[in-house]
């Protein structure tokens, strides 16, 4: 009796270990790597900076993981971030900081609504819809910036991006302040249960009477809003508008969500895994830079990560 109980506990532990997101093991490996070759990266000061640097990606990842949990995807993050940056810094929008921020949020909600409209009403593929939306927004912002280049960021965002509270940067605190309630809410609420159900089987969710359309709208609006928050942090870091802001946001957030263990079609995946993955990716890019490997290797790595993670998870779901 004892023997079998022991063994089942052992196999359960093994199950838990293999079910853990790749990001956990990956982060561990990267930290060991850094310890061996670039111990300077592990100094508290640099680690703190890397966490701060990971915050915008981490915030975007919350939105992306919501989308992927209902088997959707949001590739419009880049366009949203550029749009937000332009709204905040171009000076086109009259009014104070509060007005600017409200406008940016409204803009984000509108983009999310539009994405959801095409996906739910016209049954278009979320990949195509959001990719097109991202490109469209990017194009519009570039066209507009010919007339008026982006300028300075609002002081409030600069403050958030650059200041610290007793040594801890503010940005990651905001990241966690968004992350924890979302995770808690998804675990406890009816909405969270519905999202898991949709992720496990959208057809059954629809037939069972789960308000599928409404949830897709809600998730896409939320996702775009997280992209807006992410852009706030980015603009705050840089201190001014730029046409480069958020270019990698969509792909990196996608990679982080996959590495973080949110699996397509299983309804599984927490919020913590993707957050760790956001840190892991940022740490990885810093490590690569410290090795003197530039942008090209970063891009190749991004592609490889997404491919490997997708393969690993599809292999696991088959067994």
């Amino acid at each position: 009796m004892l023997d079998t109980a022991d063994r089942s506990r052992g196999s359960r532990l093994l199950n838990v270990a293999t079910a853990l997101p790749i990001a956990y093991a990956g982060t561990l490996i990267l930290l060991i790597c850094a310890y061996m070759f670039r111990p300077a990266l592990l100094s508290p000061l640099l680690l703190m900076l890397i966490i701060r640097q990971a915050a915008p990606l981490g915030v975007a990842v919350i939105g992306q993981s919501l989308c992927m949990r209902i088997l959707s995807i949001d590739l419009s993050f880049g366009g949203v971030a550029m749009g937000v940056s332009y709204i905040l810094t171009s000076g086109y929008v009259p009014g104070g900081e509060a007005v600017l921020i409200a406008c940016a949020l409204l803009f984000g909600a509108t983009v999310g609504l539009a994405n959801a409209f095409f996906i739910v009403r016209l049954r278009a593929s979320s990949v195509i819809v959001t990719l097109a939306m991202g490109l469209l927004l990017t194009g519009i912002v570039i066209a507009f910036s010919q007339f008026r280049a982006p300028g300075d960021a609002p002081a409030l965002l600069k403050y958030i991006g650059q200041s610290r509270i007793s040594g801890v940067p503010l940005a990651p605190l905001i990241w966690f302040a968004l992350l924890i309630p979302v995770a808690w809410f998804l675990k406890r609420s009816v909405l969270g249960h519905y999202i898991d159900a949709i992720g496990a089987n959208p057809r059954a969710a629809l037939a069972t009477g789960i308000p599928y359309g409404g949830i897709v709208v809600l998730v896409h609006v939320a996702s775009s809003l997280f992209a807006v928050f992410s852009a706030f942090l980015l603009v705050g870091f840089v201190g001014m508008g730029s046409l480069d802001i958020g270019r990698d946001l969509a792909l990196n957030s996608l990679a982080a969500v996959i590495l973080g263990g949110v699996t397509f079609g299983s309804g599984r995946g927490g919020v913590l895994g993707p957050a760790v993955a956001a840190f892991m990716l940022t740490f990885l890019f810093n490590l690569l830079t410290s090795f003197g490997l530039g942008e090209p290797s970063k891009l190749m790595l991004q592609g490889a990560i997404i491919a490997v993670a997708a393969i690993a998870y599809s292999a696991r779901t088959k067994t």
Binding site: A200, N201, L218, G267
Partner: peptide
């Protein structure tokens, strides 16, 4: 399998979905 159940989810979740049919999506599950 294709229209009724959420196969990867627990029995509890599959049945629980029905208990929530009248709840607001914002309320506690």
């Amino acid at each position: 399998k294709s229209e009724g159940l959420f196969l990867p989810l627990a029995i509890e979740r599959n049945i629980g979905i029905g208990m929530m049919r009248r709840s607001s999506i914002w309320s506690r599950a």
